[in-house]
Protein backbone atom coordinates (compact mmCIF):
# COMPACT_ATOMS: atom_id res chain seq x y z
CA UNK A 1 0.00 0.00 0.00
CA UNK A 2 1.33 3.44 -0.75
CA UNK A 3 0.18 4.99 2.53
CA UNK A 4 2.88 3.24 4.50
CA UNK A 5 3.80 6.31 6.48
CA UNK A 6 0.17 6.87 7.49
CA UNK A 7 -0.18 3.24 8.57
CA UNK A 8 3.02 3.43 10.61
CA UNK A 9 1.81 6.62 12.33
CA UNK A 10 -1.50 4.98 13.18
CA UNK A 11 0.28 1.93 14.56
CA UNK A 12 2.55 4.04 16.75
CA UNK A 13 -0.39 6.07 18.06
CA UNK A 14 -2.25 2.85 18.85
CA UNK A 15 0.68 1.42 20.79
CA UNK A 16 1.16 4.72 22.63
CA UNK A 17 -2.48 4.68 23.74
CA UNK A 18 -2.40 1.01 24.73
CA UNK A 19 0.71 1.50 26.87
CA UNK A 20 -0.41 4.70 28.62
CA UNK A 21 -0.65 2.99 32.06
CA UNK A 22 2.99 1.96 31.72
CA UNK A 23 4.26 5.44 30.83
CA UNK A 24 2.11 7.11 33.45
CA UNK A 25 3.28 4.83 36.24
CA UNK A 26 6.91 4.89 35.14
CA UNK A 27 7.21 8.66 34.91
CA UNK A 28 4.81 9.91 37.56
CA UNK A 29 7.12 8.39 40.18
CA UNK A 30 4.17 7.09 42.20
CA UNK A 31 4.65 4.05 44.32
CA UNK A 32 2.21 1.23 43.61
CA UNK A 33 1.76 0.66 47.35
CA UNK A 34 -1.74 0.34 48.75
CA UNK A 35 -2.85 3.09 51.15
CA UNK A 36 -2.00 2.66 54.80
CA UNK A 37 -4.95 2.43 57.11
CA UNK A 38 -4.78 4.11 60.45
CA UNK A 39 -6.34 2.36 63.38
CA UNK A 40 -7.53 4.41 66.32
CA UNK A 41 -6.39 3.47 69.81
CA UNK A 42 -9.77 1.90 70.43
CA UNK A 43 -9.61 -0.20 67.27
CA UNK A 44 -6.09 -1.33 68.14
CA UNK A 45 -7.21 -2.34 71.62
CA UNK A 46 -10.17 -4.33 70.27
CA UNK A 47 -7.83 -6.13 67.81
CA UNK A 48 -10.66 -7.73 65.88
CA UNK A 49 -13.70 -6.27 64.10
CA UNK A 50 -17.17 -7.77 64.37
CA UNK A 51 -15.99 -10.51 62.01
CA UNK A 52 -12.43 -11.61 61.06
CA UNK A 53 -10.41 -9.08 59.03
CA UNK A 54 -10.26 -11.22 55.87
CA UNK A 55 -14.07 -11.43 55.85
CA UNK A 56 -14.50 -7.72 56.61
CA UNK A 57 -12.11 -6.71 53.82
CA UNK A 58 -14.28 -8.16 51.08
CA UNK A 59 -17.73 -8.41 52.65
CA UNK A 60 -18.19 -5.34 54.88
CA UNK A 61 -20.60 -3.74 52.40
CA UNK A 62 -22.92 -6.73 52.44
CA UNK A 63 -22.74 -6.95 56.20
CA UNK A 64 -23.74 -3.29 56.47
CA UNK A 65 -26.56 -3.85 54.01
CA UNK A 66 -27.89 -6.76 56.08
CA UNK A 67 -27.65 -4.61 59.20
CA UNK A 68 -29.65 -1.89 57.52
CA UNK A 69 -32.30 -4.37 56.40
CA UNK A 70 -32.49 -5.84 59.86
CA UNK A 71 -32.72 -2.53 61.69
CA UNK A 72 -34.96 -0.59 59.31
CA UNK A 73 -37.30 -3.36 58.15
CA UNK A 74 -37.40 -5.71 61.15
CA UNK A 75 -36.43 -3.49 64.08
CA UNK A 76 -33.87 -6.11 65.10
CA UNK A 77 -30.68 -4.40 66.38
CA UNK A 78 -28.58 -7.23 67.79
CA UNK A 79 -25.96 -8.87 65.64
CA UNK A 80 -24.47 -12.18 66.73
CA UNK A 81 -21.14 -12.79 65.02
CA UNK A 82 -19.48 -16.06 64.10
CA UNK A 83 -17.99 -16.34 67.58
CA UNK A 84 -21.32 -15.78 69.29
CA UNK A 85 -20.42 -12.28 70.42
CA UNK A 86 -23.23 -9.70 70.34
CA UNK A 87 -23.06 -6.28 68.72
CA UNK A 88 -25.39 -3.35 68.30
CA UNK A 89 -26.13 -3.03 64.57
CA UNK A 90 -25.24 0.57 63.95
CA UNK A 91 -22.90 2.23 61.49
CA UNK A 92 -22.61 5.41 63.52
CA UNK A 93 -22.48 3.90 67.01
CA UNK A 94 -20.64 0.62 66.42
CA UNK A 95 -18.48 0.90 63.29
CA UNK A 96 -17.59 4.55 63.66
CA UNK A 97 -17.12 4.15 67.39
CA UNK A 98 -13.84 2.33 66.79
CA UNK A 99 -13.11 3.65 63.31
CA UNK A 100 -13.82 7.25 64.22
CA UNK A 101 -11.24 8.38 61.67
CA UNK A 102 -13.34 7.88 58.54
CA UNK A 103 -11.02 9.94 56.34
CA UNK A 104 -8.04 7.82 57.33
CA UNK A 105 -9.83 4.48 57.35
CA UNK A 106 -12.90 4.20 55.12
CA UNK A 107 -12.00 6.86 52.59
CA UNK A 108 -8.44 5.83 51.91
CA UNK A 109 -9.33 2.49 50.36
CA UNK A 110 -12.51 3.77 48.73
CA UNK A 111 -10.62 6.54 47.00
CA UNK A 112 -7.79 4.22 46.01
CA UNK A 113 -10.18 1.80 44.34
CA UNK A 114 -12.60 4.47 43.06
CA UNK A 115 -15.59 3.31 45.07
CA UNK A 116 -18.31 5.75 46.08
CA UNK A 117 -20.40 4.20 48.85
CA UNK A 118 -23.74 5.84 49.46
CA UNK A 119 -23.58 5.40 53.26
CA UNK A 120 -22.77 9.06 53.75
CA UNK A 121 -25.76 10.24 51.72
CA UNK A 122 -27.75 9.73 54.93
CA UNK A 123 -25.31 9.04 57.75
CA UNK A 124 -23.53 11.80 59.60
CA UNK A 125 -19.96 11.50 60.65
CA UNK A 126 -19.68 12.47 64.30
CA UNK A 127 -17.72 15.57 65.07
CA UNK A 128 -14.53 14.81 66.90
CA UNK A 129 -14.68 15.79 70.55
Amino acid sequence: MKNKRLILTGLIIFFAIVTVPLWYNLFSGKKPAAPELEYTAKAKAAKVCVEPTAFMKVNHMELLYMWRESVVRKGERTYVNSNGKKFNMSLTNTCLDCHSNKDKFCDRCHEYSSVRPYCWDCHNVKEKE
Binding site: Y24, N25, K30, V58
Partner: peptide, 15 residues
Protein backbone atom coordinates in the same frame (compact mmCIF):
# COMPACT_ATOMS: atom_id res chain seq x y z
CA UNK B 1 -9.47 -8.07 47.95
CA UNK B 2 -9.59 -5.20 45.44
CA UNK B 3 -6.90 -3.17 47.20
CA UNK B 4 -4.38 -6.01 46.90
CA UNK B 5 -5.32 -6.40 43.23
CA UNK B 6 -4.85 -2.72 42.48
CA UNK B 7 -1.48 -2.80 44.20
CA UNK B 8 -0.57 -5.76 42.00
CA UNK B 9 -1.84 -4.10 38.80
CA UNK B 10 0.03 -0.87 39.55
CA UNK B 11 3.13 -2.95 40.23
CA UNK B 12 2.81 -4.58 36.81
CA UNK B 13 2.33 -1.22 35.13
CA UNK B 14 5.31 0.39 36.85
CA UNK B 15 7.57 -2.60 36.09
Amino acid sequence: DVIAIKEFAMGLASL
